[in-house]
Structure formats: C-alpha cells, structure tokens
Simulated scan of single mutants.
Amino acid sequence: MRNSFFLLLLFGTSLFADFYSDLGDKEFQKHNYKRAVDNYKKSKHPNKNSIKIKLINSYLNLGDNFLKIREYKKSLYYYNQAELLNKNIASDKIAKVYQRVASRYEKAKNYPKALEYYKKALHLKSIKLEKKITSIEKKLSHQKKLNNDTRKIVTKNSPVWTHSVGRLIIPLQLQFINEKRYKIKNKKCSATLVNLDPYSSSSVIVTASHCLTNYNQKIGPLKFAIKNKKNHITYRIAKIEYDSRFDIKKMKTTTDFAILSLHKPIENKDVQAMVVSNKSFDHLANKSLNSFGSLAGFSNDVAKYGSKLTYDPQCKLSRYNQMYGKSTCTGFKGASGGAIILNTTSDNKNFQHHFVGVISHFRDANYKNIYFTPHHLFFDKLVKTIKKFN
C-alpha cells in the first residue's frame, strides 16, 4: 500500500509537471509569452533542452514586442534572458537594440552615449558601423585638437550679420523601417540670406554646391530655416537657380557655390539680409584702414553638435588661388555653405560687414584652414537672381 502511494505521488507529480509545460504551450500559441515563461519555469525539468528552447523562443518574442514599441530596456532584459540560456542565440537581436539606442542618442546629439552603444553593437555583430563610429569620434575629438577655438553661439546680442545665416535641409533618400513606414534621410548645411538693398525683403540665399550633390528632388523640396528677430524659426521652400557643380577632383577649375530662390520672401522686419558688395574681399581689405574676417555656420562639433548657429568673430582672409580664398577661422562639417564676412573700417571705431564668400571645404586634419568661394566669382549671377526674385 505504501509503495502504491509513492508510485501514485510520483506519477501525479509527473502529470503536474506536464500540465505546466502544456499550459505554457497554450499561452505561447495565444502570444501570451510572459505567461508562457511563468509556466515553463514551473515545469519539473526547466533545464531540459525542449523546455529551454521554449523559454528562449518566449524570451525572444517578448524582446521583439518591446523593441517594436521602443521600450529598449525591457527588450534588452528579455533578449539577455534568452542569451543566458544559449550564449549566442540573441546576440544579433541585442546588437539591434544597441544600434537603435545609439541612433536615438545620435539624433539627440548625445554623441558620447551614441558612440558607446554603437561600439557595443559592433562588438556583438559584424555590421557596417565603422564609418558612423569614425564620424562620431571625429566630432568628439575635434575640439580637443584645437589650440585656439574662439567660436561663439549666436544670440540676439551677436553681430547683426550673423542673423542672416540659416540652415538648408537637403533630402537625400528614403529609409524604410518596414513596408508601410519610412523616414527621410536629410543632409544639413548652412546658407545665407542676401540682398542688394539692406532695407528690402529677400527671396535669395546662397550656399555651397557640394551640399546639393546627392539631393533627390523626387523625395521632397529643399527647405531653408532661419531664426527671425523674435527668435522664432521661419521656414521657406527653396529652388536651385544656379549650381556650380562642384567637383573635388577639379579644384583648380571648379568653384563651390549655389544660388537658390525662396517660394516666399523673408521680410526685412523679421530677418535682415546680408548686403552683397560688387568688390572682391581683397580689394575691400586693401581700401580699408583695418580689416579682419569672420564666418558663421552650423558646425556640428560645437553648440550641441550643430543644433545652434555659431560664428568665429575674427580671423585672417587671404587668396589661395583663382578659385578659392583661405580663412584661418575655425569651423567644422555642417558649416559648409555658411557666410564668410570681411569687416572693414576707415576709423578703427565703426566697422562695416561685407558678405564676401561661401564656406566650401576644409583641408587639414584639425579643420583649421577653411577654404571658401569668393563671391566676386558668382556676383553677376547673384545680382541677376536678386533682381529677378526681389
């Protein structure tokens, strides 16, 4: 009788264990993966391979579900639980979460954190992140290499000419998240609102030609964004009127400028456009008692990594060759297309500000020497466009 009792107990326990495993299967089929996990864990043999596989699949599905709704911490937790049961089973998925987290940090311009998570993703999976990591490392290391960075964030108290510089948003391609969802990948450069008359509204901006190289007009229009005197952002649709078709392989024969019109003027009471002189920068400098250069643009290594407009108040401008001038001002990628300014005076007290060129490219590793396209090379085209649209 006693032996029969123990046999019944053993048999009953076995049935009880099978009951939880079966219940876990039912919950799994209903996509109730959390309940499935709870039941599989109650199985008499949770370390059995068949139960382990069921647990792993439940954890992976839980991780996938939380990844879809962007709850990355919970997603990572469940993927890690799966990885504890099988060392390599979830590494690709964990790498995907790290990449998503890194992308969010990058979008928020928190580059130290973005770099940390991109490297974690790269460590787990052989994915093409090397270029992105290199790009972020450049941004983070640039300031450390500079000996004398005098750039300032543009505020309402900054020189009036700085407020004529805005941001040009260039659509490049569609990035599909799934069959129905996509986002537009944009490139961002700088651009300057210009005019011949300091008291009139303007519908003309200038930027660098290389900013437009991969522009895909089928995806959407170019957009120009600039802060007005009330510190609100004004948007305009832009259209290319002239493009020098910059070619880095033909530096001695091609310039780097583009002239664009806006679909609607920006009122002078909101933004004062830069006045364009018909004299070259070296001619203006020679006629001045004293002169110095300045530049402004959205350099993406400073001011929340390009979120804010910055300017270098003082540097030297010189002629490099027939196509380009050279500046000792400090800048970085994102400033391309921004304004080069010559400040002149006849009494060392009162200074005039002249738009004299467009930021083009950088030559040395520290981005210290900035090359620009002098405005006198495209002055006639610029005047023609201004007269047509203003």
Rank of each mutant, 00 (worst) to 15 (best):
L260E: 12
D256N: 11
M323V: 06
S288C: 04
Y320I: 00
T328C: 14
D301S: 10
D301H: 03
F292P: 05
S318C: 14
L260G: 09
P265C: 03
N321R: 06
H263V: 01
T310S: 05
R319P: 03
G338Y: 14
F257N: 03
C329H: 06
P313S: 03
L317M: 06
G306A: 02
H263C: 13
A296D: 04
R319H: 02
F281N: 13
K316A: 07
V275G: 01
D347K: 04
T253V: 05
D301C: 05
A273N: 12
A296F: 12
C329E: 06
K326N: 13
L309S: 00
G293N: 11
N343M: 10
K304W: 13
N268S: 10
N321E: 11
A296R: 00
I340Y: 06
S288K: 02
Y305L: 00
V276P: 07
H263Q: 05
K308C: 14
K264F: 04
S346A: 14
S294D: 00
L317W: 06
S307Y: 11
L295K: 03
S327W: 09
A296G: 04
G338L: 09
S291T: 00
T253K: 12
S336T: 00
N348G: 11
Y311S: 04
F292I: 01
K316I: 04
K308N: 14
K333Q: 09
G331F: 09
K304T: 08
C315H: 12
L262I: 12
N350C: 10
I266A: 08
C329Q: 11
N268L: 06
A273Q: 03
F281D: 07
N350G: 04
G338V: 05
K264P: 10
D301M: 04
S288H: 05
G306K: 01
L317T: 11
L289K: 11
N343D: 02
C315Q: 03
T310R: 00
D282P: 09
T253Q: 12
V271L: 02
T310A: 01
T253G: 08
G331A: 15
S327D: 09
Q272D: 04
M323P: 00
K269I: 08
L317C: 04
A339R: 08
C315F: 13
L260F: 15
K349Q: 08
L295F: 09
C315N: 07
T255R: 06
G337A: 01
S288I: 13
V271H: 11
I266L: 00
D301W: 07
